[in-house]
Design a protein around this nucleic acid. Structure first.
Length: 425
RNA sequence: GUGGGCGUAGCUCAGUUGGUUAGAGCGCCAGGUUGUGGUCCUGGAGGCCGCGGGUUCGACCCCCGUCGCUCACCCCA
């Protein structure tokens, strides 16, 4: 780029109209579904003490180790931009002690320092929910259901739900021991990378997509077989609940998610319309230790998060009709009087609830009509010297071919009624 | 962090073996209509060919560097 101009930093992007219309649609739809499920909006800071994320998502995770935006402020505080939504929300829960079960939804940017790629950014945007203070499996079912209903509401169809249970700390560590000794016997069959690092985090091997690792882990011990009675009952209850409300799912015994805080239920929605590298629409799970890790009283929690850019990619890949989301107004006011009669007319229409656009800079009638057409307006209101002198406004239906029949003049005082009538037809 | 591809008008892209005034389509503006859009016709505006250096009589084109975009690995949203 030439000197003296700026552009958005690497891995970030501006979203302008008309594309931003889709963002409005996705976020509004999510807000509506969150409302139906009785969630309330939580807004928390974009940056936190770095410890919130270190303790929250686990020191060992890639995100905490090398992807966080960490900085020191003028007061010497060590802060980090949020790399994901959950840890901040749980920190807010611990700080304010709201009555439980606490149900919160959010929409937020998230920051990760990594090389950008298709559907992957340094600043991306997530929306999601969290429920804290109850381990009732009915809540697991609701959180998963909300995600599923929401995806359908924005037009997605080609996705699958994978569900697993990681157990609580004790049954999981028992399983990890079994897994370790199993892997120890099959080290040389793993992929190159995991031959070296399997011991540090054996669960990650389950997540490996390489054929070698898949072959080994499929044949090995499966996490759900090692659950304690309580965790198994919980997992069965979640499955029953999903079935009861008609949500299809597949058991995925090797599904382990990236952050260390997950316990018991974990789930992921995978798009069949996207390449495997970025097919995760969203996911989440239960985190029954996280509140404690952040210094609060023990409180179980569960949530899910979804990347907005990912959802839009998937929607595009599925060919969801984006034309429906094209921005358009109800009325376009054309004023050729030179006296600016448009300003009060437009104001009056807007006060009555219509979406209204107009032109500026004294353009010709022809130019103004072109703008009216492109605005997508249903009606054009024309005021020229003639209408002004007679105290009238000409109403024209821009969507009808034969304007001779539909174009008519009405008294200025009767404009609102006439517009209302035409738009209701 | 590692590797591949690509940077020419607001957008999508052409640009001959290196040759003098850099093109198209779309979009934008104006006119064809003395007050009427969507089609059509005509005209116009808009480019330090990402940036810096080098080779050459001459560089959008070749070489080096740099920045940016993009794709893949890793990991994830």
């Amino acid at each position: 780029m030439s000197e003296g101009t700026f552009q958005a930093p690497v891995g970030t992007h501006d979203v302008l109209g008309p594309e931003s219309r889709q963002w409005e649609g996705v976020i509004a739809t999510f807000a509506q579904w969150a409302y139906r499920y009785s969630f309330s909006l939580v807004i928390s800071p974009l940056f936190e003490d770095v410890g919130v994320f270190h303790r929250g998502i686990g020191e060992a995770s890639d995100v905490a180790k090398k992807e966080m935006y960490v900085f020191e402020d003028r007061g010497g505080r060590r802060l980090a931009l949020r790399p994901e939504g959950t840890a901040s929300v749980v920190r807010a829960f611990v700080q304010h002690h709201p009555t439980t079960p606490w149900r919160a939804w959010y929409v937020t940017p998230a920051f990760r320092y990594e090389r950008p790629q298709a559907g992957r950014y340094r600043q991306h945007h997530q929306l999601g929910v969290e429920v804290l203070g109850s381990d009732d499996p009915a809540i697991d079912v609701e959180v998963i259901a909300l995600a599923e209903r929401f995806y359908r509401a924005i037009g997605l169809r080609r996705f699958r739900l994978h569900v697993n249970s990681m157990g609580h700390a004790e049954c999981r560590s028992a399983y990890v021991e079994v897994l370790k000794s199993y892997l120890a016997r099959h080290v040389d069959e793993l992929c190159d990378e995991h031959q070296k690092v399997w011991l540090a985090n054996p669960l990650r091997v389950l997540d490996c997509k390489k054929a070698a690792c898949v072959t080994v882990t499929v044949a090995g011990p499966q996490l759900p077989d090692y659950l304690c009675d309580a965790c198994r009952d919980h997992f069965i209850a979640v499955q029953r609940g999903l079935t009861a409300i008609g949500i299809d799912f597949q058991l995925a015994p090797r599904l382990v998610r990236g952050f260390d805080y997950y316990t018991r239920t974990t789930f992921e929605f995978a798009s069949d319309a996207l390449d495997a590298a970025q097919n995760a629409l969203g996911g989440g799970g239960r985190y029954d230790q996280l509140a404690e890790q952040l210094g609060g009283e023990p409180a179980s929690g569960i949530g899910f998060g979804s990347g907005i850019e990912r959802l839009l990619l998937a929607r595009h890949a599925e060919g969801v009709d984006e034309a429906l989301l094209k921005r358009s107004v109800d009325v376009f006011v054309v004023d050729t009087t030179g006296d600016d009669v448009a300003t009060p007319l437009v104001d009056e229409l807007r006060l009555r609830g219509f979406a209204v656009s107009r032109s500026y800079d004294q353009r010709s009638m022809k130019a103004q009509m072109k703008l009216a057409d492109r605005s997508g307006a249903r009606l054009a209101l024309l005021v020229g010297p003639q209408e002004r002198d007679r105290g009238e406004v000409t109403i024209r239906d821009l969507r009808s071919a034969d304007f001779e029949q539909t174009q008519a003049s009405v008294a200025r005082d009767a404009v609102i009624d006439a517009v209302t009538q035409r738009l209701l037809k």
